[in-house]
Each structure stands twice: as C-alpha cells, then as structure tokens.
C-alpha cells in the first residue's frame, strides 16, 4: 500500500531496514581461514567443488581477520593457541559471528585433558555449534544456514 501503489510500475519495492540489512549480511558472509586440525580438512572439503559453499555466499576464505565477518573455529584449540584465538577475534571488525565447528571446538570432544580449551566458548562468544567429529560438510552447511536464520532474525536494537 501507500508508496508502492502510487509508484506503480517504476520498479520500487519497500522493505524494512532490518530485513534489508540482515539479508545483505547473510548473503555474502566471508569466513576467516581458521582451520586448526581435522575439522579444517572437512571445511576445505565443504569449500571444494563437491559440496560447494560459495553458493551460500562464502565465496572466499580471507586470511586476514580485518576483511572477514565469520570465524569458523574448526578444530581443537590448545592452551597455547587460546590467546592467539582471542586476539584474532578482537581484530575482526563488527559485525562478526563465530561458528564452533566440530566436537573439539564446542566441548573439547574426545580430549578431556590439561592441554585443550574445554570448548572454545571459554574465550569467544559462539553463535552456532556444529556437532560431529568431524562434521560432514553437509552438517557444516546446515550450521551456516542456521546462522543465516539467526542473523535474519536480528533486531535493530541488538545490532553490533
């Protein structure tokens, strides 16, 4: 109604600001290359030709944190690596999201010992957890789509 009716055939669509921005954010979310261990190989498989992730917007994997929006923590995080992880997370500009891929990143998986962080959410806030050891590429894509849904439902007041 309203403006659209008056504009007629001029090709104008009105949409809420939230919807537009959230839609744009989900459509081209570039992940940062943070493959640590075995899950990194499945992440590389998900990026490769068989289970193509670029159809979901993850065209490139940026090595620099300054140019990426999504950090997929793929693999186990050792205690020596934890400060590095936190520093890279801090270096990413807003808006940023974190997917914790695999069992080791979510809860340290098989390894319940002195050397690993028991779950990467000890140091960074996680948005989506993907279970599996390693998760199939389809599971990772499902995690990415879940994150898309979460971003789609973000409100203006909670934007970072």
């Amino acid at each position: 109604m309203g403006i659209e009716q008056k504009a007629g055939d001029m090709g104008i669509v009105t949409v809420g600001l939230e919807q537009a921005v959230n839609w744009a954010r989900t459509r081209a979310m570039w992940p940062m290359l943070f493959g640590l261990a075995c899950c990194a190989i499945e992440m590389m498989s998900a990026q490769a030709a068989h289970f193509d992730m670029s159809r979901f917007g993850m065209e490139l994997m940026r090595a620099s944190p300054r140019q990426s929006e999504l950090m997929i923590v793929a693999g186990r995080v050792a205690r020596k690596m934890a400060p590095v992880l936190r520093r890279l997370y801090d270096q990413m500009p807003d808006p940023k999201w974190v997917i914790s891929m695999g069992d080791c990143a979510s809860c340290s998986g098989v390894f319940n010992n002195y050397a690993l962080l028991q779950g990467v959410d000890e140091v960074v806030p996680v948005d989506v957890y993907v279970a599996g050891c390693p998760p199939r590429p389809e599971a990772l894509i499902h995690g990415v789509l879940t994150l898309d849904e979460k971003v789609r439902n973000e409100k203006l007041t909670t934007w970072k």
Binding site: A37, G75, R76, N113
Partner: peptide, 25 residues
C-alpha cells in the same frame, strides 16, 4: 605446540580400544 592435545597422556587414562579412537586424530 599450538595444537598440542596431550594425546599420549590421555591414552594412558583410557582402555586399549578407547585409546585407538585417539590415534585417528
């Protein structure tokens, strides 16, 4: 050392067949 997982010590706390799961990783 940035991926040190303590597998050798962790295998000492598991049974023989459970420890094999860690050898994959």
């Amino acid at each position: 050392g940035f991926l040190h997982t303590g597998i050798e010590k962790n295998m000492e706390a598991k049974r023989w067949l459970q420890a094999e799961v860690m050898t994959d990783r």
